[in-house]
């Protein structure tokens, strides 16, 4: 028997499940109210096309991606230096690290009500919660990355007398870990984005998901979820490629 094409072996199960869903929905389900709650894959596809045509989907993607970029960007700008400091200077590092470690177990989503109180409803609040969630992850990852630079490498550079060399040695050594931390930070931002948008945004993928419930058009919810997954995956792949490049030239 000829070997199955790679696409089938990879996606066969997914396709089969979708087919079962569509068939089952069309034949087994008789209560019309079910359509209000569980849309068929075909309905979802149609809804996706409609939302893409009228620009809603693109607008939502742009808004959400913008928020993630801004939040993660802020987190990286602040978090990488802080993480490096924590790993490099023991006493100052401990002072900075201790409060962060205290706060870390509280899921970022739990902060949402407080951020609403402080920043009001709007973009600043969205940015605050995304940046905060990503910050914790970026700091932790950067600390590990910088602390993981082999001391032998550093002392060798130091012995050679070159302070600049220290930088030229430490930074590339830590870079892969920092890249991983940034990637995780962005992933966390996407993770928390939904919660942030649920509570107080007027446009975005999270809003799209919520609208599906509010309007009782669950197809819209699934379209939002799918787009969210796609965006998260795309950014993650892009960052992974970047991480690989950085890892390669060190």
């Amino acid at each position: 028997m000829a070997p199955l094409s790679p696409a089938v072996t990879r996606w066969g199960l997914v396709a089969a499940l979708l087919g079962l869903w569509e068939l089952g929905g069309r034949t087994l389900v008789t209560d019309p109210r079910t359509a209000l709650f569980l849309p068929l894959p075909s309905t979802i596809a149609l809804a996706a096309a409609a939302l893409a045509r009228d620009g809603t989907l693109l607008a939502a993607i742009v808004r959400s991606a913008g928020r993630v970029a801004a939040g993660a960007g802020a987190a990286v700008l602040v978090g990488v230096p802080v993480g490096a400091v924590i790993a490099t200077w023991p006493r100052l590092g401990a002072a900075l690290d201790a409060p962060l470690r205290l706060v870390r177990p509280v899921p970022p989503v739990a902060w949402v009500p407080l951020t609403l109180l402080w920043f009001g409803v709007g973009e600043r609040q969205q940015l605050a919660i995304l940046a905060f969630a990503a910050l914790l992850v970026v700091v932790a990852g950067t600390t590990d990355a910088v602390a993981g630079v082999p001391p032998a490498l550093l002392s060798a550079a130091r012995n050679l007398g070159e302070r600049r060399l220290l930088l030229r040695v430490a930074v590339p050594a830590a870079l892969p870990g920092v890249a991983a931390a940034v990637r995780e930070g962005v992933g966390t931002a996407w993770f928390v984005l939904v919660a942030a948008e649920f509570v107080s945004a007027s446009e975005g993928l999270g809003v799209l998901i919520l609208e599906g419930r509010d309007l009782l058009e669950p197809a819209r919810t699934f379209v939002g979820m799918g787009a969210l997954a796609a965006c998260g995956a795309v950014t993650d792949l892009a960052l992974a490629a970047l991480q690989r490049r950085w890892t390669r030239w060190t």
């Binding site: 402080w118 920043f119 009001g120 409803v121 709007g122 973009e123 609040q125 945004a201 007027s202």
Partner: peptide, 8 residues
């Protein structure tokens, strides 16, 4: 002071 956002 926190200011409301001009989202609308």
């Amino acid at each position: 002071p926190p200011a409301p956002d001009a989202a609308v």
